[in-house]
């Protein structure tokens, strides 16, 4: 499986899972390749991959977007601050997306294991996801911007 195919499975998973939560009107920008990736979002969820693909997938957004996504996951209960419950909901959402992507990849006989997601939140956050080249895609959703970064070697 090629890296681009892998990335497309991740993107298909993002759209499928958000679709399951009836998130419509999602706009996707084109895939951008970066030589090294530094993330400065308030909330980032990272899932590690090992096996036929080795690396990390990161999902990043602002605090406001994270609150709205958490609220969506909790059947519309208003989330006014990103507390432990909100972060747990965010972890669950991006875990679902990652598992959906891995299921799609397994249909091409790729054997990939994933680690539990880690949600990183804070102020003035600077994350160096990788020192290798990374594919990034920005989504515009009704909840705000979500950036998906795919730093994986096959």
């Amino acid at each position: 499986m090629r890296l681009e195919q892998c990335m497309r499975h991740v993107l298909a998973a993002v759209e499928a899972v958000l679709g399951q939560f009836r998130v419509a009107d999602i706009k996707r920008e084109s895939i951008v390749r970066k030589d090294e990736l530094t993330l400065d979002y308030e909330v980032t969820t990272i899932v590690g991959l090992t096996g036929d693909a080795n690396g990390n997938i990161a999902y990043s957004c602002s605090n406001e977007t994270a609150k709205k996504l958490a609220s969506m996951l909790m059947n519309g209960i208003l989330v006014t601050e990103m507390n432990e419950l909100g972060r747990s909901a965010i972890a669950e959402l991006f875990n679902m997306i990652s598992q959906n992507a891995l299921f799609r990849m397994s249909s091409e006989n790729a054997r990939i294991d994933s680690s539990q997601p880690s949600v990183i939140a804070g102020e003035n956050v600077m994350i160096i996801l990788t020192f290798m080249s990374t594919y990034c895609v920005t989504y515009w959703t009704p909840f705000g911007k979500i950036e998906v970064s795919f730093a994986v070697e096959l």
């Binding site: 990390n56 972890a91 990183i120 804070g122 994350i127 996801l129």
Partner: peptide, 21 residues
């Protein structure tokens, strides 16, 4: 066990959350 590449971060009021384990 196989390792995924590490990532590294800095910031203020940093919190790491994970699924229960």
């Amino acid at each position: 066990l196989r390792l995924a590449p590490p990532y590294v971060l800095t910031g203020d009021k940093l919190v790491f959350a994970s699924t229960k384990a």
